[in-house]
């Protein structure tokens, strides 16, 4: 009797906990924008983007991809330049290692620990956007960063599984303040 009651209470707590467990709201942190030799260099870190379910999916062997988009907007908020790239990671089920492909550098990186690969997976490291910003009138511009998880196809389900639902079905976005060229020139 007592165990039944305690199980019931535990179940209620777990079930309500599961429901109340908020979906993730990833944000770009440590955003750094520099202008050097007519090139815009952007670095950032995506935070709060994994939970236990996503961790489980990351080690399932599926190819998980985050598509990044960096846009430069002029003062009229018109896109004047953009760069789209992706990070794709998968777990090698035979060699038990993580393989990460960084499309902006067109290179693979190998990791043995999940936390390490997650860290690199969500890091934008000195992304170069080739654009002569001197053209932009009055030197005022904005930078937007967008990151989005793409769906995976699961054979066992026989359909696509939308990973973005773990992010509240919203891509992570960052809007910079109005930037002035002289402020970020190095």
């Amino acid at each position: 009797m007592f165990s039944t009651i305690s199980k019931s209470i535990a179940t209620i707590a777990v079930a309500i906990g599961a429901l109340l467990q908020t979906n993730l709201s990833p944000v770009f942190n440590e955003v750094q924008i520099d202008y050097t030799y007519d090139k815009l260099i952007c670095s950032a870190k995506l935070k709060e983007c994994f939970n236990s379910d996503l961790d489980k999916i990351l080690i399932s062997g599926e190819k998980i991809r985050i598509v990044y988009l960096i846009q430069i907007l002029d003062k009229e908020k018109e896109v004047v330049a953009e760069k789209k790239f992706f990070h794709e990671m998968s777990y090698d089920l035979i060699d038990k290692k993580f393989v990460l492909f960084l499309s902006e550098k067109e290179k693979y990186e190998i990791f043995l620990q999940l936390e390490e690969v997650k860290n690199r997976f969500t890091t934008l490291q000195s992304i170069i956007i080739s654009k002569d910003l001197q053209d932009i009138e009055s030197d005022n511009f904005f930078v937007i960063l967008i990151a989005k998880l793409t769906p995976i196809y699961m054979d066992s389900l026989g359909k696509e599984f939308d990973l973005l639902k773990y992010w509240n079905n919203k891509p992570a976005k960052f809007f910079s303040n109005r930037l002035e060229l002289k402020e970020i020139t190095r």
Binding site: T11, V14, A15, I16, G17, A18, L19, L20, D53, K56, I57, I59, S60, G61, E62, L93, M154, D155, S156, L157, F161
Partner: peptide, 19 residues
């Protein structure tokens, strides 16, 4: 792995439905 993942995700879904 996929089949185990499906089971896991299904169980998670059921927990949410129960809640």
């Amino acid at each position: 792995n996929q089949s185990e993942l499906t089971t896991y995700l299904f169980e998670r879904r059921m927990t949410q439905i129960s809640a």
